[in-house]
């Protein structure tokens, strides 16, 4: 990729952003309602933490405020992902069903880029901020004072987490080239990432192995929070998270190319 290409893509991306801002501002009521919906679901998860810790003092070695930190971080990563990619992933099946994909394929840009980034969900940034505030409060309760290295580690791993969300969801969305039902795909995604906010120590055996080594859902928010909360982190889990993020991104792009070959336009 040359510098010129990068600046070109940057300009396309900023145009898409301006577009999204204009679109969101024309449905203000809906914009605010979606923020409320997401905030409610977040509150629900926090309620659950409250109920769980009314029964016990620890889950494995996780204490109440550490778990709040975990729920906050998993929500933070999910909202960032949602802001940048989720709508685009779920729209893919609609593009295939209506044949609008033709138009995107004909554009002189990388199709995967334009399919993945067309819409930015600005409301999700508000919810990410909310999750950030909850995390800050939990960190205050835990009397945590992360140093710069820990902050950087946490930030990078959050971005890696976003990449994992994106790769897995993009694979799910690419299935829509064969079956054109988006709702099932979104359902699958939410169920899969539902466990990202659970402490890793709650799991054992095959289930844990599957969601650590194959689908790294249990690493996505557990590893960064462990760093922030100064809990024990094995260097392997770091390496594993990075390696699996790379691997899943690679698989998703191979699968995308494979799926694209199966595309038959709906309109013609």
């Amino acid at each position: 990729m040359t510098i010129m290409q990068i600046t070109r893509y940057w300009r396309i991306y900023s145009a898409l952003w301006r577009n999204s801002v204009a679109r969101e501002m024309s449905f203000k009521g809906n914009f605010i309602l979606w923020i409320i919906v997401e905030a409610l679901w977040f509150a629900l998860q926090l309620c659950f933490v409250g109920v769980v810790f009314a029964q016990t003092t620890t889950v494995g070695t996780w204490t109440q405020w550490q778990m709040v930190l975990l729920v906050g971080a998993s929500n933070f990563i999910q909202q960032l992902y949602q802001a940048l990619f989720l709508t685009n992933c779920t729209n893919l099946s609609e593009l295939v069903r209506t044949g609008k994909m033709d138009f995107l394929l004909a554009l002189p840009v990388n199709t995967r880029f334009i399919v993945s980034t067309r819409v930015v969900d600005l409301g999700a940034f508000v919810n990410a901020l909310l999750a950030g505030c909850v995390m800050a409060y939990a960190a205050h309760k835990l009397a945590l004072h992360p140093n710069l290295a820990e902050w950087c580690g946490f930030g990078i791993l959050c971005l890696v987490g976003v990449a994992i969300h994106y790769s897995l969801m993009f694979i799910l969305a690419s299935i829509s080239f064969w079956t054109v039902r988006a709702q099932g795909i979104v359902w699958g995604y939410y169920n899969l990432f539902n466990i990202a906010r659970m402490p890793d120590e709650a799991f054992r055996g095959l289930f844990k192995a599957l969601f650590t080594f194959a689908l790294p859902v249990l690493l996505v928010s557990n590893v960064p929070v462990r760093i922030l909360a100064e809990k024990w982190v094995s260097p392997e889990s770091w390496a594993l998270l990075l390696a699996l993020a790379g691997l899943w991104f690679f698989i998703s792009s191979r699968f995308w190319k494979f799926s694209l070959r199966h595309y038959t336009s709906a309109s013609s």
Binding site: Q55, V59, N194, I195, F203, F207
Partner: peptide, 14 residues
């Protein structure tokens, strides 16, 4: 089944 199984595991741990 994923969240269902996760819930079962969580309570077992508790």
């Amino acid at each position: 089944f994923i969240p269902l199984f996760a819930m079962v595991s969580l309570w077992r741990t508790i």
